[in-house]
Computed example of a mutant assay.
Amino acid sequence: MVKESSELRILTLSEELGIEAIFGKRIRNTFQRHIHSTYLFGLVEKGVRHITCDDRTYSVAEQELFMLQPAQVHACTCSEDHCYSILSVSPELIETLRAQKLEKNRNLHPCFTQIHYKDAKLSQQLQDIFTLITKQGMSDHALTLIQTYISTLLQHEPHTAQEVVPSPEPIVKNTCAFLKKNHAEKLPLSAVAEQACLSPFHFQRLFTKRMGISPSDYLQAHRVAEARQLLQKDIPLSDVSVSLGFYDQSHFSRIFRKMMGVSPGAYRKTNSK
């Protein structure tokens, strides 16, 4: 029997608010330690997703939820039949919803601390959101449901909960901005360390300790994020790879598949505008 191919589809629901819906089918990759720049609220629809974070592994089964914060270092492995839907939400929108909750009770300091949720009601609510946006796209009703859902998750957290991911120190934060700004350039470790006024050895150790991933992995993740946008346009893969600082198309394809679970060509096929 021929195995069905993997498929990854990403819908931008609101550029202004920073909301995306991510639909993955039969994504079989093993994803090494990495981070995201947004909050992820995910529903496993088939199979099992194993998430390893802080030396603990969470096995998220069908109709169970997972939640990851920006910069929360984790790794994932999935069963071969794994299918999932994820709501990606910008930190700015989350902060707005937090502020609204704090206005109602200033003694609370709401934040997310859980990764794995086993709550049938929460799972069904998220499934309803995905069903709605699949049929109708983004709407005022869908936005209201998303905001209400996130507020509900915040209410599930203990009132004394503390942030899981601390803010990086200035030297690391500035380096992240430098890497994003210059992602199209060839950036050897020595050049990146120089802008931080550190030796390559000390810089690599500091960055990896604070971020949980190496400067190279951080840079490649940003390049792949930029590639996602370019792949929606009619631009040859060779031009995409060169414009983003990859050595060649083969290098680009290898890194993209490693981080996204599908090849650039397969991604373009399901996400072209």
Rank of each mutant, 00 (worst) to 15 (best):
V2A: 03
S5A: 10
S5T: 13
R9Q: 05
I10L: 07
L11T: 08
L11C: 05
T12A: 03
S14T: 06
E16P: 10
K25D: 00
N29V: 11
F31D: 01
R33H: 11
H36C: 04
S37C: 05
V44A: 07
R49Y: 10
D55C: 01
D55V: 04
T57M: 11
F66A: 00
L68K: 09
A71G: 05
A71R: 15
T77G: 00
L87K: 11
S88Y: 06
E92H: 15
E95Y: 13
A99T: 14
Q100E: 07
R106W: 12
H109W: 13
F112T: 08
F112H: 10
K118N: 03
I129P: 05
T131N: 09
L132C: 03
D140F: 10
H156A: 03
E157R: 12
E157W: 12
P158C: 04
H159Q: 13
T160N: 12
S167Y: 13
N174M: 13
N174V: 10
T175A: 12
C176E: 10
L179D: 03
K181F: 08
N182I: 07
H183W: 10
A184C: 08
E185V: 11
K186V: 11
P188T: 05
L189T: 14
S190W: 14
S190I: 15
A196G: 02
S199T: 13
Q204P: 03
R205S: 02
K209R: 13
I213M: 00
S214M: 06
Y218N: 00
L219P: 05
Q220E: 04
R223W: 03
R223Q: 14
E226D: 03
A227D: 01
R228W: 07
R228H: 08
Q232H: 10
K233D: 04
I235M: 01
S238K: 15
V240C: 08
V242K: 15
S243T: 12
S250N: 13
F252D: 04
S253N: 07
R254M: 04
F256E: 01
T270N: 09
N271V: 11
N271I: 10
S272W: 12
